[in-house]
Write a protein that binds this DNA or RNA. Structure first.
Lengths: 346, 346
DNA sequence: TCTATTTTTCAAAGCGCTTTGGATACCGCA
DNA sequence: TGCGGTATCCAAAGCGCTTTGAAAAATAGA
């Protein structure tokens, strides 16, 4: 089953390659009847243009690049595949491919330069932006369309991004706890070089202030979001002379560890200790599946992947349009893991 | 910073494109001095051949395809990105790209056919093989080099694969427990349409038989490997009139849920209930990080990714060589979560 | 009826690389 | 001196597609 090419198809139809190509690509300068015939034949012979030839001729690669920083991979890891699953569906539907490069052997910067220079990709998605992220400047310099999943910190420039309102989400979560009477609320955050984590801390601080609660650095941790770190930090918190009665975790992973620590200490969730986690919608660790089900700030990372793919594709299609800047609010879903603060003499 | 192409580079050097191309690609028919000059100039101008042109001219894409079946994605999900992280490093080092297609809009079969027809990829990695997997036949028919992560069930054909000895691993795990005096050992397995899960069940059954223990279907579950399922199944087990005193989980995810259920029931791990999990080395959920640290059958999925990438690349380079068939044994790492069976009147 | 338009179609020139089939120059050796 | 070899290098033909610039055909305007 060797592939048929344009030339052969054109020969079969007694038409020129030009006409066939145009008919297939929807150009206006071709007769209706002819177009029909061409389409029909293409279908019958299952003709598909050789993408490499198309790429060479057009300079468009029909490919989106994703660079996985290998050092930070641990962080974005499980979230990353969820994101791709969402984005991938959109790309696939538009005939785009995803190419994935793992930084490490080749440096992240080198990869972007290669992308740009050899038009390997039409655009890239930037994952895990940090507060001060050089990648955005680089990509801008290279003229490569890009969209950031999240936001860079201070950056003033105009760039495309989709982010969730991390600050608002954690502000709401903190307020919920404060309003339940909790006075010592801990935050088991992700690494605060990442903007999302920095924003969450901000929201947390804002809420504390608005409720007249002190910001106690001893109650705030910033680590990679793993089960183990969640467990370790929760354990530390439980050993404090004056224990927090509530904790907010930046991910279901660290929450899972925190829950384990709470169990081990013989305390009950939602009664002795309240807990809220941010839920990205990881399918293998569902907040609803816990007992009690977890109160969460929720936003589907998969949906973000889909939406960002759409946005990037339209940026590529229409380069002169305004750069999209999308902020999603995260839902605060109250479930059983949050309850009134135990009486203070507990 | 527009890319310099072969023609320009050749002009600069007062050489023909032929010679420059050959010099760069290491062909013998070019003088040493000339080659040096060419290399030097290429470096100076940071020349990089346009991959699309190369692809078109050679028909080789320098790309490996990975198809993510969207329906099964939940399963391979967190493991998948680990795998890619490992494979990606190898690909990157050899100048190969990874392209990823999410099945869904386009069917899985259609994607493979497209891959083959338009030489989009030089080879593919098949993930999550099922006992009876049509993909292998398809790929063989299409003549696309492929390597399977795992094995198909009954398939007699000769194909490339890398798998771990799932049967042996679970046999060892079960024997360990039996030898500690456990008589009722449960298995919280993955979906047994997947070969890895079927093999694990086999190993479990073999061990039971060798130790003269009955195979009780009520002690064996087969579900997607999520935290929630692990929790649910463990809970069920704990409600049995005659409870199992030990359980083996097919993944750290389900183990995590099982542990939660054990905690909730007020039992102690390694004393009241022993637990062993299979550990793929997911960085966000480490067996060593639990308390007590988990006894596991361990094999790094990331290492598998790297090795399989190497194998596939060499298959592509040397298509006539024998197809690699690699079986890794999983380590049985004994830690604190396994202990002697509690006295039977417990 | 004949010219001016508009439609429809085509031949040919790239896109940037590899590769085939010669040239050309250089060497040793008879 | 002349000839077969060998070491270097090159012009040109693809790879399969898009796109430009024109021609041919069909339609309209007068």
């Amino acid at each position: 089953m060797i592939a048929m090419n344009l030339k052969e198809l054109a020969a079969h139809l007694n038409l020129s390659q030009t006409t066939v190509s145009r008919a297939l690509n929807g150009y206006p300068e071709v007769g209706e009847e002819t177009r029909r015939r061409v389409r029909e034949a293409a279908r019958r012979f299952d003709y598909r243009p050789n993408p490499n030839a198309t790429r060479l001729a057009t300079g468009k690669s029909h490919t989106i690049g994703h660079v996985i920083p290998t050092d930070r991979t641990l962080m974005i890891d499980p979230h990353f595949s969820e994101f791709i699953a969402g984005a991938g569906e959109v790309y696939g539907g538009s005939g785009f491919d995803i190419i994935m490069s793992v930084a490490g052997p080749e440096s992240e910067e080198a990869i972007y330069r290669r992308y740009a220079k050899s038009s390997t990709v039409d655009g890239v998605v930037v994952h895990g932006p940090q507060v001060n992220d050089w990648r955005l400047d680089l990509l801008e310099e290279l003229g490569l369309p890009f969209i950031v999943h999240g936001r860079a910190g201070e950056r003033t420039g105009n760039y495309a991004w989709l982010d969730i309102d991390n600050s608002g989400a954690f502000e709401n979560a903190t307020k919920l706890l404060a309003d339940l009477g909790h006075r010592r609320i801990a935050l088991i955050n992700g690494l605060e070089v990442m903007t999302f984590a920095a924003h969450r801390r901000q929201g947390y601080a804002i809420a504390l202030q608005s409720r007249g609660l002190p910001f106690d650095p001893a109650l705030v941790f910033s680590d990679a979001m793993t089960e183990e770190n969640g467990h370790r930090r929760m354990r530390e918190l439980l050993e404090y002379a004056v224990r927090p009665s509530a904790v907010i975790c930046s991910s279901m992973l660290s929450a899972s560890g925190a829950i384990r620590a709470i169990h081990e200490s013989g305390r009950r969730i939602g009664e002795d200790i309240s807990i809220i986690a941010h839920d990205d919608g990881l399918p293998f660790l569902r907040a609803e599946g816990l007992t009690p089900p977890l109160t969460t700030t929720r936003s589907s990372i998969r949906a973000a992947g889909s939406r960002m793919a759409e946005l990037l594709l339209s940026m590529i299609k229409n380069p002169s349009a305004d750069l999209p800047q999308v902020l999603w609010t995260a839902d605060l879903v109250v479930r059983g893991s949050t309850g009134p603060a135990p009486s203070s003499h507990a």
